[in-house]
């Protein structure tokens, strides 16, 4: 059993100095996927827990790993690597799940590991260049150049927009009247 890490406490201490500067800064949790680093808005992160086996959801997109039981709530787990079009993660005990809570839902993101917490000036966030409409870049909300490299900020709302991408595909046909016309 992996004890959930209390992000809110961390976020609270980090957020404190930013108060004077208004909303000019934001904190992001970064995680590495392959060689790229991705940033997740810390205010959306509820907890980080170790990987646990999931229950598969039938006819779901490949980047949905299934659902887990998070203290009585059914939470879907997204494979962030697969979501960005890379090869699916082969999760092991060292992998972690970042539980994200947005206005609409709670979702877990499967990542290799959490590497850092960065404080970013809003003015430092660069827009994502438009390269192809269907690529994974539309799942990003911005880019942050750091000394050690670039961090891509994840557009959580789009990322979690499961229904748009998958549920429509598997929506059951309503009228099956032919069967009745025996």
């Amino acid at each position: 059993m992996n004890a959930p890490m209390n992000i809110e406490a961390v976020a609270g201490t980090l957020k404190a100095p930013a108060d004077g500067a208004g909303m000019a800064t934001g904190q992001y949790i970064t995680c590495a996927l392959n060689d790229a680093e991705y940033g997740i808005d810390i205010m959306s992160v509820r907890e980080i827990k170790g990987w646990t086996e999931t229950t598969a959801i039938p006819n779901a997109p490949s980047w949905i790993r299934g659902v887990i039981n998070l203290r009585g709530v059914i939470v879907p787990i997204l494979d962030l690597r697969a979501r960005f079009g890379m090869a699916p993660t082969m999760p092991g005990p060292m992998h972690v799940v970042v539980i994200i809570q947005t206005m609409e839902r709670t979702v877990g993101l499967l990542v290799d590991a959490v590497s850092d917490i960065i404080t970013v000036d809003v003015s430092d966030i660069r827009p994502v260049p438009e390269i192809g409409a269907g690529g994974p870049d539309r799942l990003l909300s911005g880019l942050v150049p750091l000394e050690r490299g670039m961090v891509a900020l994840v557009a959580l709302e789009k990322l979690l927009n499961i229904t748009e991408d998958s549920a429509l595909k598997s929506e059951r046909p309503r009228e099956d009247t032919a069967a009745l016309a025996a």
């Binding site: 229950t55 959801i57 039938p58 659902v67 009585g72 059914i74 839902r105 979702v107």
Partner: peptide
Amino acid sequence: VKSLEANYGPVDGVAGATILGDGRVAL
């Protein structure tokens, strides 16, 4: 009975989810 729709969405052929004795989710 737990809602699958709250955090995910409707799934064809599945009415909901539940948690079994071993903590696993079953549809």
